[in-house]
Nucleic acid binder design. Structure first.
Lengths: 143, 143
DNA sequence: TTGGTTGCAAAGCTTTTGCATATAT
DNA sequence: ATATATGCAAAAGCTTTGCAACCAA
């Protein structure tokens, strides 16, 4: 079984399902939802159950190894805790989720803390719009 | 029945349920979810159904009269389309949702459009943290 | 050995949908 | 008159939970 350094201790156990799920999230090039995770996991471990996926997702959230995003959909997406905070671009045409960073966000946090006496612990920023590929696509064949 | 100027035309009908729902959202001091809307609506119209609430919410969204927010919960919140774009502060202690505006957001949008060739149509910014009341509360009796 | 974990099935919650009835226009 | 809207109940997502069996430590 692949040893995932982060997962252990505190009365927690290292199981093959847990390691697999963590591995799949971290290899998921950004974001993945529970259902896709489940489908990918079954290819490696056909008997794994969806509840195991959800239970581990919950655990990873509590351990702060993984972040949960609501985006605008009916289901949630997960990503391994990024070393550096980043934000998301959501293409409203193809549904793709891209990442970006921008230093103005830190400035904004500071301003808000001062202006509203609100202690900011994290920022969740989603810019909704059209990605570059879809823009080209629309030029090529306008609808 | 209260006439809601925005709701009419395009084969749309003015019903007492529709007017009531719109009225409740706009009076909801910021944000309200479907269930609370339903409970408030029943006080005025005891026979109104939850599906009517959801169907009108959907309609208002399509008509761009109301905005839907996912925040971080399992259900969605709604607010009447604000004249000016604003963003949200989410208190992770008491759950309150506050509003704020910040000019850096427009700057950030421009930078992102240039740097990522992404055409931004709207920004959804949530700052998670502790509101001023809860900060005082924690000072008073630290846990 | 034993308490955390899993798989399965069932339940929960929010949101959506089918259909007959009611109603705005 | 007639197409839109409603109420009710049933269904449909996504997520959580109870429980017996399993297995990592």
């Amino acid at each position: 079984m692949v040893r995932v350094h982060d997962i252990a201790g505190e009365g927690r156990r290292q199981t093959s399902q847990r390691a697999l799920i963590y591995d799949l999230i971290s290899k998921a090039n950004g974001h993945i939802d529970a259902d896709e995770l489940y489908r990918k996991a079954r290819k490696k471990q056909p008997r794994i159950s969806l509840s195991t996926v959800y239970r581990n997702l919950q655990l990873f959230k509590e351990m702060r190894l993984v972040e949960e995003h609501g985006f605008s959909e009916a289901h949630r997406h997960y990503e391994v805790k990024p070393r550096a905070e980043h934000q998301h671009l959501l293409c409203q045409r193809c549904g793709k989720v891209l990442e970006f960073k921008n230093p103005l966000i830190d400035q904004m946090k500071k301003q808000v803390e001062e202006q509203h006496s609100f202690k900011v612990s994290s920022a969740d920023v989603n810019l909704i719009g059209i990605c570059s590929l879809c823009q080209k696509d629309e030029e090529a064949r306008p609808e």
